[in-house]
Design a protein around this nucleic acid. Structure first.
Length: 477
RNA sequence: GUCCCGUUCGUCUAGAGGCCUAGGACUCGGCCCUUUCAAGGCCGCAACACGGGUUCGAAUCCCGUACGGGACGCCA
């Protein structure tokens, strides 16, 4: 049997991390078993549909690298099929028309709840003669479910789960306006699409009993089910906006890498020994539903941030340059030239080791793009004492003729410091301030090398001039 | 209210009766490395929800309690 899985979001909002993880597990499971992963948009509730949501969801999945093996199925386009199946069930005596109005049912539920009874449909029309139907009132179709016995599901994650049929009522499968309900549409579509494994959030676990009753009534083989726990926020409540970013695209915009988000989501609720850092290709080779945990997991932004740093360091330099350039332009409000791109490229190994997100990377690299005069951090400014400026002026002259690469520059600077009887630090820190306007940066001789001799000299001279203006010291000898 | 599910360090998890004085990762603290900051290395803090069984032996199996979550819609 070829495995076929699906992800079936409703276009009522953006793809959040919970949905993304569900999609990821479905995708990985299909990959693992050489099967297919399909996409179905559950758009039967037109009232709740959000414009643009479908595109957002598709874009999110694509960014994460979760690709469907066929074009998406839109549930709304299958309404006639859903109605046909429901009516066939009536014809077979396995479903019936019920004529209560939505208001009557609502009142019935409220009364039951108030009296401490479970809010279930009483089955009034189950055995009534259809001839008694009130004229002019369109009926809804309800499934005639067994009242005795129990419904049992073998869940790949939750294990055996059973419920007494007396707990379940005759659910509506076709609304009075002829549109299917979710429960019905899902069963018909999953069957028609040949879905073999339904992997979804465990908020659907109790729905599964009713879906199984539908499968049984239709005489269709039930797919395997796997209900994965929901993702909660730091406080244990269902993850929501107030916990921070929740939509996949937000993480992208905040400078997270898709492989890091996927890695984090994979590990959230799934474990495989001690491995933490894992790429999706590797995951596809070892992913198993048996390793999915049963308890809800809390979303930990700190761990995601750490993981993103790990993937950032592993990422290809050229790719990171491509990601950083537009972010630099956004910060400067201007286009950056080829000289900046080449500086960025040269310094990327040192830069990416110090950043955890693309945003941090851009923040730490923006000094490369700033025109002289550089903006100065107060702490950097404080380093440019008259004595330090004197040293810097001498250093740049001593570099005359030095091969403009990190190693030779550092060697020359060390020799220079020793000759002056100062520590390397006393030269390096003012140099860092002059070259970057900051007190932290990649190794400063790497920075000087990336900047090139002309820019390095210009920045040092500008820093000396600036220091002279702000705190005029003794006249230069 | 009824039904269903869950519960190992603060967080994500490893653990399938003896390998557990419970391992890894994140966070936090300390040290080392070091031109800064990171990265890296080393060390440390920190958990089997509770109570009963079963067993020579239980984090692992069973029952109950507590707590948490989910579902009960002509929403998905």
């Amino acid at each position: 049997m070829t495995v076929v899985t699906r992800f079936a979001p409703s276009p009522t909002g953006f793809l959040h991390v919970g949905g993304a993880r569900t999609a990821l597990y479905n995708w990985l499971f299909a990959r693992r078993h050489g099967g297919k992963f399909l996409l179905r948009i559950e758009d039967t509730d037109t009232a709740r549909e959000v414009p643009g949501a479908v595109d957002q969801i598709l874009e999110s999945l694509q960014w994460l690298g979760i690709t469907a093996d066929e074009a998406p199925v839109f549930q709304r386009q299958r309404e006639s099929r859903h109605a046909e199946v429901a009516r066939a069930l009536v014809a077979a005596g396995k479903a019936y028309y019920a004529y209560e109005t939505a208001e009557e049912l609502q009142a019935m539920r409220e009364r039951a709840l108030k009296e401490g009874r479970p809010p279930r449909y009483d089955g009034a029309w189950r055995d009534r003669d259809p001839a008694e139907a009130p004229p002019g009132v369109p009926g809804a179709i309800r499934l005639k479910v067994p009242r005795e016995g129990e419904t049992v599901i073998e869940d790949l994650v939750q294990g055996t789960v059973r419920v007494a049929n007396s707990q379940l009522d005759d659910m509506i499968i076709l609304r009075s306006d002829g549109r299917p309900t979710y429960l019905h549409a899902v069963v018909v579509d999953d069957h028609d699409m040949g879905i073999t494994h339904v992997i979804r959030g465990d908020d659907h676990l109790t729905n599964t009993f009713r879906q199984c009753q539908l499968y049984d009534a239709l005489g269709w083989k039930r797919p395997a089910f796997a209900h994965i726990p929901l993702i909660h926020g730091q406080d244990g409540a269902k993850l929501s906006k107030r916990h921070g970013a929740v939509s996949v695209l937000e993480f992208r915009d905040q400078g997270y890498l898709p492989e890091a988000v996927a890695n984090y989501l994979l590990r959230l609720g799934w474990g495989h020994g001690d491995i933490e850092v894992i790429g999706m290709a590797e995951a596809a080779a070892i992913f198993d539903l048996a390793d999915v945990g049963r308890g809800a997991a809390r979303f930990d932004y700190a761990k995601l941030l750490h993981l993103n740093g790990v993937w950032l360091r592993r990422a290809d330099d050229e790719r990171l340059v491509g990601e950083t350039l537009p972010r630099l332009e956004r910060r400067l409000g201007a286009a950056v030239g080829a000289d900046v791109a080449s500086r960025l490229r040269a310094l990327m190994p040192g830069l990416k080791e110090r950043a955890r997100t693309l945003e941090e990377l851009a923040d730490s690299a923006v000094f490369l793009a700033h025109p002289i005069p550089l903006p100065f951090d107060p702490k950097a400014e404080a380093l440019l004492t008259p004595a330090a400026c004197t040293l810097l002026g001498e250093l740049i002259n001593s570099w005359q003729g030095t091969v403009w690469q990190p190693g030779p520059l550092e060697a020359a600077a060390r020799a220079f410091a020793e000759a002056r009887g100062v520590r390397l630090k006393d030269v390096a820190m003012p140099l860092r301030a002059a070259l970057t306007g900051m007190t932290t940066s990649p190794p400063i001789f790497d920075v000087a090398a990336a900047l090139g001799p002309a820019e390095t000299r210009a920045r040092i001279e500008a820093a000396i001039a600036r220091a002279g203006q702000i705190a005029p010291g003794p006249a230069a000898p």
